[in-house]
Write a protein that binds this DNA or RNA. Sequence first.
DNA 1: TATACGATCACCT
DNA 2: GGTGATCGTATAC
Length: 202
Amino acid sequence: MTILNRDFFSRPTLTVTRELLGQRLVCEVNGQRLSGLIVETEAYLGPGDTASHASKGRTARTEIMFGPPGYAYIYLIYGMYYMLNLVTEQAGFPAAVLIRAIEPQEGIELMQSNRLLPPRLLASPDPRLTNGPGKLCQALAIDKTLHGWDVTTGQKLWLESAPALPDEALATGPRIGIDYAHPTHRSAPWRFWVKNNRFVSK
DNA sequence: TATACGATCACCT
DNA sequence: GGTGATCGTATAC
């Protein structure tokens, strides 16, 4: 097992978006590991991508995206859900990958209680545990306190390498929830997911 | 200072 | 298929 380092995140964003699939996202809360394999990601490709918050220019919220790679960009959406992004590429170029879904591995019972799902769903990890960007943050207790966190340290929030997935196991398509973006960016196939994985978002 | 809205989700018909 | 929740941020005034 190795922890994904800054070199991993410094590469072209689409490469990172593709290669994050299958890697393990780990969050440690009170000494307990909560983890899952990444099964869905989206690329936000810099200042020219009208779907990206960074296209509005440098602001307090998006400042972290303009910095060096390997840091967490976390923001609140719709007043109640957090989104986890990982900053990519070199400092000065604002790009990131949104983590949209994971397949739970460790700490499933704690994820269950974090998500406040009804007990009847306890039948083996229910897909609703982590099959969406807001859901996985709630399950792993990821909130604004981790905004700007260096995810290459192996503490609190980090990524561990797992066996690479072959291209045949993956699919791509347009990103979700960006109707406000330019048509070119709205239709670009910058969302990646693992085929036939039941934890991919609806 | 005021306003509009969002990289979502749960619940409803 | 549709809608309400709920608040930080960006933008307008």
